[in-house]
């Protein structure tokens, strides 16, 4: 809700009269049109009334109208949202599972060559711009090697159905999901490794050793379970970045999601759509956070039990 308020003020902070801006978008900026718009959007009313109306609109899922696309913003977003959800969720699952697995592996081999190799790789991915990695991936795997499709969501006009279509989408999904996931995988891996090493100095690990447990059991049952908590917290906090990163990935791969929609609207100066996408992406982050919160509660018995 606060995001909606922020959105509203951002719209009003835009240089110039919103009505002129909106009229400009509509393509006809004569006086009459502007006056009409002003009346229609209540721009001649005091600010708080406008705010109230805007919020009321959002509650009813009315995000305004895109003149450029000639459709309500909510329809545009609804049409694109599944593709974005598919992409971000896949990338999230890949990066989190691979990141934790590699972090555990690196921590178990700390100081050895394989650890240095993994940490260096992570550092490298951590420093690589997402969109550039995406471009290079297209160049290598799509243009040069021709293994995977580099653009789009599915083969246009192929008319696949059922399983064949799913397979087609999957092939299109691999590159975007991987490039989006790699950066976050690096983040989670570094975090997991550091957290594993931190926990491995804890007293209860010494207790476990004194009980005669084997190294593998100690790592799995004692260290990992405790080390994973801060990683889950971080993953929740990073969800916002993941959604932001989707804008870039979708742009490069022409993935028909809301990120791509945002990019197109940027070029067209379609403010209503930009803000609508922004609002929806913020809502997605909240969704991600609810998920991590649930995971956290499952892993840590102390939460909820503490009364």
């Amino acid at each position: 809700m606060a995001i909606a308020v922020l959105n509203f003020f951002l719209l009003h902070a835009a240089p110039g009269d919103p009505a002129v801006v909106l009229a400009g978008e509509a393509g006809a900026a004569d006086e009459q049109m502007i006056a009409q718009l002003r009346e229609r959007f209540g721009l001649d009313q005091p600010l708080y009334v406008q705010l109230g109306k805007y919020i009321a609109g959002i509650v009813q899922l009315d995000l305004g109208y895109s003149f450029r696309q000639g459709a309500p913003v909510i329809d545009l977003i609804a049409e694109r949202l599944p593709a974005t959800l598919l992409l971000t969720l896949t990338a999230f699952v890949i990066s989190l599972s691979a990141g934790i697995a590699l972090g555990v592996a690196a921590a178990a081999r700390v100081g050895k060559v394989s650890d240095s190799l993994l940490t260096t790789l992570a550092l490298l991915f951590y420093a690589t711009p997402l969109y550039w990695l995406a471009l290079m991936a297209v160049l290598v795997f799509s243009v040069w090697l021709g293994w995977l499709p580099g653009f789009g969501y599915e083969t246009v006009g192929a008319g696949y159905g059922g399983f064949a279509r799913a397979w087609d989408i999957l092939k299109h999904l691999i590159l975007p999901a991987l490039t989006l996931g790699l950066f976050f995988m690096a983040v989670y891996m570094r975090m997991t490794r550091a957290s594993m090493l931190e926990v491995s100095t804890a007293d209860f690990v010494k207790t476990a050793k004194a009980k005669g447990l084997s190294g593998a059991v100690i790592r799995r049952r004692h260290i990992l379970r405790n080390a994973i908590l801060p990683v889950v917290t971080l993953a929740g906090l990073q969800a916002g970045q993941l959604v932001g990163g989707a804008v870039l990935t979708e742009t490069v791969f022409a993935w028909p999601g809301i990120g791509r929609l945002m990019f197109e609207s940027l070029a067209a100066r379609d403010y209503n759509t930009i803000l609508g996408v922004f609002l929806v992406s913020a809502a997605m982050v909240i969704l991600f956070n609810i998920v991590t919160d649930i995971v956290y509660r499952i892993v840590d018995p102390r939460i909820g039990a503490k009364v």
Partner: peptide
């Protein structure tokens, strides 16, 4: 922090 920072 919850707002997707790149989008913002």
């Amino acid at each position: 922090q919850t707002i997707p920072n790149f989008a913002l």
